[in-house]
Design a protein around this nucleic acid. Structure first.
Lengths: 235, 235
DNA sequence: TAGTGGTCTAGACCACTGC
DNA sequence: CAGTGGTCTAGACCACTAA
């Protein structure tokens, strides 16, 4: 049975067509009137779907012209997309990553930083946290959240190369595609200080990331805290 | 005259109330019916405003309960290769940029952070510093350095759109091509605190950038310090 | 049960783009 | 000029929450 609402169905259809390349970058999409007629629904309902696609960043809209598939933004950032392990490769440093919290299944937080998709909320949340060290000095404490959908056995496996991204790719066919990342300077909390060996209140770099993947509506969220006394984070 | 649309007016009013603290974090906002009655507009128009606030991440909504102020700093995209002014375009924020130091010609610092090319050192250095404010709150203090070669009259002109990049492009045919940027969390110094209205020692985000241009061996260097209490820097 | 947000309709007028 | 997206209305029914 379909409990799915009409605007979500339209949204899903269009998104699929875009991802599959039925509509290429820059292509114009059917107009709101065409879609409302095609689906036999009102124009406001079509607008709901289109506005959501706009919010997702998949399309842009121009008054008097139409709606178009958006040009994908610039190339992928280095730090982000490759993850910590890869970035440090080639640098002659002794890097180590250890779990503070091995992957566990829990509930999503009610006021999670990012707005979650419905399908993410309908599944539980996988949570893990790690500390990265350079030459035995803890540099980064990272909390990671992802939706527990289609990831059977995720929590009971060993990570490949100690890398979350490698594990997702090899064991679950999930590839990281893009990243949105935000930076802040915050004060060290008890929790952060404990893992990074910093006094509470010391400045620490917070990196908030949302990683999109080749699987629609599947994202990896992470909150990282870095001691930047000796290292900088480069993009 | 007000050409502003009704839903934008509601959106603006609510956002202001949230930012000003009329509604604190976790507080419930007036319901859609209350707002539509208060403003004398239809519920769908109120929903448009509320949905936009949700997309902005300022509120979250729960069926059967209401709409609530979210725990989260306002997150504005402050930065990218396009520079501050361009990023802010289209966002309904009141942004301003003022010079702390209008462009002046001086010597390069002996121990400049980056290694300079010979041709850069053979010319003097143009130095300027600016403070960027969002809604009259100083958010970013930025020092900029570039080589004074082929930039006749640079120091005596007015900036186009108050933008360095626009001025370089329009008046000097210099286009920014790429950027290397590094992030650190540091403590507020006397100088930074003075311009950002922060106490000395408070965490502040340092962004060190080297921008390459369409002119060979011509770079723009900048050191920016951001108050990220309420805004994040996005790449 | 009363109130909330989520969905949806069938209209309408507007400003804008392109032919 | 016809077509587009942007705005807006005045209703409606629903699923959900909390008292």
């Amino acid at each position: 049975m379909k409990n799915i609402s009409k605007h979500l169905q339209v949204q899903k259809d269009l998104r699929l067509s875009i991802v599959e390349g039925v509509y290429a970058i820059g292509d114009i999409l059917p107009s709101e009137n065409e879609l409302s007629e095609k689906y036999g629904i009102s124009r406001m309902t079509v607008r709901n779907a289109m506005n959501n696609l706009h919010a997702e960043g998949l399309i842009y809209r121009q008054k008097g012209r139409g709606s178009f598939v958006k040009i994908k933004p610039k190339s992928i950032e280095l730090l982000s997309i490759k993850g910590f392990t890869e970035i440090m490769k080639g640098k002659e440093r002794d890097i180590d990553t250890v779990f503070v919290q091995k992957p566990v299944i829990q509930q999503w937080n009610e006021d999670f930083y990012w707005n979650l998709e419905e399908n993410e909320l309908s599944a539980d949340c996988i949570y893990l946290s790690r500390v990265r060290s350079v030459e035995n000095n803890p540099i980064m404490f990272e909390k990671t959240f992802l939706s527990n959908s289609g990831l059977s056995g995720f929590c009971s496996q060993d990570f490949i190369n100690k890398s979350l991204f490698d594990t997702l790719l090899v064991n679950h066919d999930i590839e990281i595609k893009e990243v949105v990342q935000k930076f802040r300077a915050v004060r060290t909390t008890d929790e952060i200080g404990k893992y990074l060996d910093l006094p509470v209140g010391a400045p620490v770099l917070e990196i908030i990331r949302k990683l999109s993947t080749n699987r629609a509506e599947f994202f990896v969220y992470s909150f990282a805290y870095c001691n930047t006394d000796e290292f900088t984070v480069e993009t």
